[in-house]
Design a protein around this nucleic acid. Sequence first.
RNA 1: UCCACAGUAGCUCAAUGGUAGAGCAUCCGGCUGUUAACCGGAGGGCUGUAGGUUCGAGUCCUACCUGUGGAGCCA
Length: 464
Amino acid sequence: MHSATTIKELYRNTDEFTDKQITITGWIRSNRPSKNFGFIELNDGSFFKNLQIVYDSDLENFVEVSKLNISSALVIEGQFVLTPNAKQPFEIKATKIIIEGESSPEYPLQKKRHSFEFLRTIAHLRPRTNTFSAVFRVRSVAAYALHKFFNENNFVYVHTPIITGSDCEGAGEMFRVTTLDYDNIPRDENNKVDFTKDFFGKETFLTVSGQLNVEGFAQSLRDVYTFGPTFRSENSHTSRHASEFWMIEPEMAFANLEDNMRVGENMFKFLISYVLENCPEEMEFFDKFIEKGLIKKLENIVNSDFGCITYTEAIDILKEADVKFEFPVYWGADLQSEHERYITEKVYKKPVFVINYPKEIKAFYMRLNDDNKTVAAMDLLVPGIGEIIGGSERENRLEVLERRIEEMDLDIEDYEWYLDLRRYGSTRHAGYGLGFERALMYLTGISNIRDVIPFPRTPNSAEF
RNA sequence: UCCACAGUAGCUCAAUGGUAGAGCAUCCGGCUGUUAACCGGAGGGCUGUAGGUUCGAGUCCUACCUGUGGAGCCA
């Protein structure tokens, strides 16, 4: 990809390069000049850590180099030498420094800690900081880890549509997709907007979930998953909601709720192990500066079993809890954030599945249990974040599903294709959705979802 | 949408109702091994916006704007 040596290679295969003449490319993170020599901290994007460059007045452009601002781009030739008695393990004694691109004194990032809030206002520059370069490398590695997990377990990756004609996916407010001219909206005889004149000839939206689509593929390819962007237009103002986020949704034929939980737990543990193993420098940084004890926390997760309780048991625990909750606890009530937090943070202190919720508070497609009161749903709650996985065994009995659609006051005509899946050799099947950013928050200790997405979209904010 | 908190120099923050300040950054100078280098000097402000109270408002009051945290919704 490049002819230059990368800093990652220097750190990983140090011996190979000792005392060799090499070429390095990268950006200045810090420049400390004095009269006849100076030091540059260089980062080349290949690795979390920097490389120290020593330069002196033998360079023909010494004066220019000593005045370079942070973030200037350089090509450096020099000798790679070990420095066992210094703070850094090795450095480059520069013999030639070519200035590829100058920066300027107005460069807004300083050699000090900035608030995440300020960095969000310069989202195009924040990947140049330690924290965000680490976050986004981990994001990439985590995405790969998830693909690897599913691939190794013979799941087929399905690309479900981003634009959907179904306004009843049932998982929240949707963004409209249209090419209608707002200044001249076509109307029908009842003065309603005439969507037959719109691009697709009907109302269309951005997807809130690929689940219903991917269920169709599970009945052919058996174990499948989606991994793509998801859009919700709720006016949410919290540290764990974004209008555009990524979601992983596995769906498995011939699987029940038990299988579903097992896959969810294995996937989550694999993800953690893979990131710990492949991003040690980044994780060490997070452990030191973002969340003390992070690595220990994650290692504990990998080495222990997730908790599992039924909704009914959870209600009993909450009723007996010696804590004043703002919202009342009774069977049939949805679990509030404070309740979920109590269970996962105070009682279990680790991830815990809550299963078998009352059917009234869950989606129509979840399989009705034999008690006729609860559905085979599962939420995985984790400390600090709350719900990170939501899933269920799906209702695969045609009559029951039809009845549930009616009970929930949904229009059965919208679901004919979905009902077809139950008409032609339907199997028991189950799946879930993992919020990718929420998983990243848990992995990195970053407490705001806006800081694990490259260019976050939230209500009133779609900059860059 | 509701509740709470906050907006002062490029950044992070001070300032009892009484002359708006520091550290970092920037610029200039010094420095032969620095490590968020160090030392000396300089420039930098309509205190979020609009009203009001007061002899006097960064500070008190009202409204609005923006941001952050929390709730709801969920991943």
